Simulated assay, not measured.
Amino acid sequence: MPPKKKSKKTKKNPEKNGTDLEEKYRRSTLDVAVLEDYVVFQCESVRKVQSDRSDLRRRVRDMEQRLQHERQDLRDISSDLSRQYKTMKADLTCKVRTLEEEVIQLREKLESCQEELRREKRERERVEQEKDAIITELQHKLDDMEIDCEKVLHETLDSLTSQLAAARRGWEDTSEALHRDYTELLCEFGLNALDV
């Protein structure tokens, strides 16, 4: 509060002066009470600020501890991940080496199989050529045998035909003689051969 200006007092009335004094005393008491409230308020504010500061320091300490724990966890996780990475890298390197060796073996096996296949193809072609030659030769023989069989068959049929013709002539002669004999015999009995 700003200091009050001193005013020149005129002593007019002692009662008025007493009332002024009482008024001033009341005002001073009120000012003191207001100042005391202000001081109490400021003390409480200071205590609250100190308490808040203490809480904040405690929270900062807790956060720093948590941060420290988080950093330690992060270092542990990073270390573990690094270890896992190295292990996986070693495993993958080993697998890659094994697979490369297997690829080399399989390529060699493939080349061997392809060479075997080429040999088998050449052998099959040779066998097919031999078979074709044998089939062609057998076909020629079969054609020759067919011609020979046709000749034999024609000769046999011609011979059989001439024999059948001769036999037929003999049977016809015999049948005509028999027919005449039976006709004469029927005539002797008085029968007509056409009726019978």
Rank of each mutant, 00 (worst) to 15 (best):
D80E: 07
L56H: 15
D80H: 03
R75C: 05
R53F: 13
M63T: 09
D62K: 13
D73V: 07
Q68A: 07
D80Y: 01
V60K: 10
S54W: 15
L74C: 04
L99M: 14
R57H: 05
T87E: 10
K86R: 13
D52V: 10
A90S: 11
C94G: 07
R53K: 11
D76G: 03
D52F: 13
Q68K: 13
M88V: 02
S79G: 03
Y85I: 01
Q84A: 01
L81A: 06
D62M: 12
D80T: 02
L74M: 12
L81E: 07
R57I: 05
Q68H: 07
K95A: 03
V96Q: 04
R66V: 03
R61S: 14
D76L: 13
M88N: 03
S54H: 12
E70G: 01
E64C: 00
D73W: 07
D80C: 00
Y85N: 03
L67V: 06
S79Q: 09
D55A: 06
R66Q: 06
Y85K: 08
L99R: 13
E70S: 08
D52W: 15
C94A: 13
R59V: 06
Q68R: 13
Q72R: 09
K89D: 04
S54F: 15
K89G: 03
Q84F: 02
L74F: 09
R71K: 15
T93E: 12
Y85W: 05
T87H: 04
R75Q: 11
L67N: 06
L67R: 06
V96T: 11
I77G: 01
S82C: 05
Q68E: 15
E70H: 09
R97D: 12
S82V: 07
Q84I: 02
V60N: 02
D76T: 14
H69I: 08
L92V: 14
R83W: 00
S54I: 14
E64I: 07
R61W: 12
M63S: 08
